[in-house]
Structure formats: C-alpha cells, structure tokens
C-alpha cells in the first residue's frame, strides 16, 4: 500500500498544470461554442466543412501523435540517464511538430487562394480563430522543445532538470490532445 502512495506523482511543476488545465478549460468552451453555433445553422457548417481537406487534418493528427510519442520515449530515456537518446527523441518530436506547422501553412495558403478568409462565414471564422490559437500554442511548444533540446546538450545532471523537462512534455501533449478534438469537430463530424 505504501508503494502505491509513493508512486503518485505529478509530472512537472504544479504551476504548469494550472496553466494546462486552464487552457483545456478555455478550449472546452471553444468546442462547445462551435457546436452551439453549428446547431443554429447546420447546413452552412456542413457545406463549409466540405471545403476543408480531411487528408491534411489526418496527416497533422498523425504528426502530432507521433511527436507526442517521441516526447514520451525521450522522457523515458531521460529517466534512464540516456542523454543523447533523449536529445535525439526530442529532436524528432520537434521535427514532427515543425511538419505540422508546414502542413498548416500550406493549408491556410490553399484556403486563402480560394478566397476563403476569416470573414467568409461563421464556420470559417471559428476555423481560423480556433486553429490559429492552436497554431500559436504549437509555436510556443516548438520553442519550449528547442529550449529543452539545448538544455540537454549541457552537461548538467539530468535529475536537476527533470521537473522542467516533464513540464515541457506535459505542455506538448496538451497541444496534441486539443488538436484531436479540433480535427474531429472541424474536419470530420458532419
């Protein structure tokens, strides 16, 4: 029984969880707001959704899931004191995240080329605002990952940096999980 009590652990500093849970709550409101306004004009939302490329959305989901998995493997490597392996995993995670950004860049370009902007209609207003805010989170996450990769390059004891690394990992997973819901409601569900 003592063992199970000892095993309880909050990854990262408590502060990061206040931020992450706050962000999840705000995105929860975004999801509900979108669904509410969709219920007022289902035909418009369904018609507009046809303009989105589900393949880009699915590719981005797989990129973020894979990125998250590399972070998980990287954290396991850190706990086993495998510094170079953890750096390699976080670098691969960064590349997958960057790939998400590149796909999004092309996707936005494609929409704008077709004259679809923030003011086109309610669906696209929510599409640009929600994916835009998520994109901002992604850029912050890429900066955090880059900082962690640099930090792992220094010869400091890994145990000292563990809460910082866990906090960064937690933030990155949140970016992933918010996209899972955005992908479903914006791209898939009719």
């Amino acid at each position: 029984m003592n063992k199970s009590v000892k095993e309880k652990h909050i990854p990262g500093e408590t502060g990061i969880w206040v931020f992450v849970l706050g962000d999840m709550f705000i995105f929860g409101l975004f999801f509900v707001t979108f669904a509410y306004y969709r219920s007022l004009d289902i035909a418009l939302f369904q018609q507009s959704q046809l303009e989105l490329n589900q393949n880009w959305g699915a590719l981005n989901t797989v990129l973020l899931l894979t990125s998250s998995w590399f972070v998980v493997i990287g954290m396991s490597a850190i706990r086993k004191n495998l510094r170079s392996m953890s750096r390699a995993c976080l670098s691969l995670a960064w590349l997958c995240g960057f790939g998400f950004g590149v796909v999004k860049f092309f996707e936005y370009g494609e929409k704008i080329e077709h004259g679809i902007t923030l003011t086109s209609n309610d669906f696209f207003m929510y599409y640009y605002i929600f994916t835009g805010i998520h994109f901002l989170h992604l850029i912050i996450g890429l900066c955090v990952l880059a900082y962690l990769i640099l930090r792992l390059g220094k010869n400091k004891p890994l145990a000292e940096d563990l809460p910082l690394l866990e906090g960064g990992a937690t933030y990155w997973h949140m970016v992933d999980l918010l996209w899972i819901v955005l992908f479903s409601i914006l791209y898939l569900i009719k």
């Binding site: 095993e7 309880k8 652990h9 909050i10 990854p11 998250s68 998995w69 972070v71 998980v72 990992a169 937690t170 997973h173 949140m174 992933d176 999980l177 899972i180």
Partner: peptide, 12 residues
Amino acid sequence: VIMHFMEVNHAP
C-alpha cells in the same frame, strides 16, 4: 493521451 502520455494515471 492524458492518462498515458501526460502520466495522469500515476498522478494524485
């Protein structure tokens, strides 16, 4: 993602 990747299944 929350329970396994974010390790919440081991959290309080």
